[in-house]
């Protein structure tokens, strides 16, 4: 079984709002002190891929990432948790979700795959479209919001999260799964030795332009501007000598403001 997992490298989405800045010209955030990370749902997707391989007792996990030529951190991390292969697709300029889907689609034509895993949405632009777009462009089904999956009898069984629980579903191969977070798919920690090994492994270097054969994927959307919203709430911090007093004062204020 061949599993391909799509990893986007992004600026840490956890930086507090007050430290977030944007470059109006480029319509992109500035990096500031933010580190680069694997987009969180892609970490979940990677964990699901590793679990699928373990449960099946066979299979190959290929991690693929599109980005500027220096962006291989996500792939190194994937190799450190024992992905079998890593592919970096270098692309110039802004790569929005639509361009990414087109490039991934072209890359998948060169890779063998039974299952493609994506995060449900990237933690930067929050589009959440690449998985379903890929499925449609490859003409295969898509199961969204998966938390766990295994390979059985030539098909995939997956837990798909619902509003109040989950569905157990069965899908034929090949298939695209988009992954959402659950307590069962937090990405494992790599062993120190594997991190060192990963640094020496080869990462296949592909070019987006070559994959696309000169065609430029028209994104069909345009970001006109990007700005930081202003929001202003004055917080009334309850003071007091001890916790009980604070709790009491809070209760009174809640009552006065008719909140309860």
């Amino acid at each position: 079984m061949n599993i391909v997992v799509c990893l986007k490298q992004i600026l840490d989405p956890e930086i507090p709002a007050q430290d977030f800045r944007i470059d109006q010209e480029r319509k992109e955030p500035t990096q500031g002190n933010a580190s680069l990370v694997i987009s969180p749902f892609d970490e979940n997707a990677l964990e699901v891929a590793l679990q699928m391989r373990e449960r099946a007792g066979e299979g190959r996990v290929t991690a693929i990432s599109i980005g500027s030529s220096s962006g291989t951190l996500a792939l190194r991390k994937a190799l450190a948790v024992k992905a079998d292969q890593a592919v970096h697709v270098a692309a110039e300029g802004t790569i929005n979700s639509f361009t990414a889907a087109a490039i991934l689609g072209a890359a998948l034509k060169k890779l063998e795959f039974d299952v493609v895993l994506c995060g449900r949405q990237a933690g930067d632009w929050d589009f959440g479209v690449v998985g379903p777009l890929l499925a449609e462009s490859l003409g295969i089904p898509c199961v969204p919001f998966v938390t766990e999956a295994s390979y059985a009898g030539g098909a995939i069984q997956a837990k798909r999260q619902t509003l109040d629980g989950y569905d157990l579903v069965k899908a034929p191969l090949p298939v695209v799964l988009t992954v959402t977070n659950a307590s069962t798919n937090n990405l494992r920690y790599p062993k120190v030795k594997d991190v060192m090994m990963a640094d020496r492994k080869e990462i296949l270097a592909w070019e987006a332009a070559t994959l696309l054969g000169g065609e430029s994927p028209d994104a069909s959307i345009e970001v006109r501007d990007l700005f930081i919203p202003v929001h202003k709430v004055e917080c009334e911090l309850i003071e007091g000598d001890n916790a009980t007093e604070k709790a009491l004062k809070l209760a009174r204020r809640m009552r006065e403001l008719k909140l309860v």
């Binding site: 977030f20 944007i22 319509k27 955030p29 632009w125 028209d218 994104a219 069909s220 959307i221 345009e222 970001v223 006109r224 501007d225 990007l226 700005f227 930081i228 919203p229």
Partner: peptide
Amino acid sequence: ALARVVCK
């Protein structure tokens, strides 16, 4: 952030 997006 907020983006203003148009469909082309």
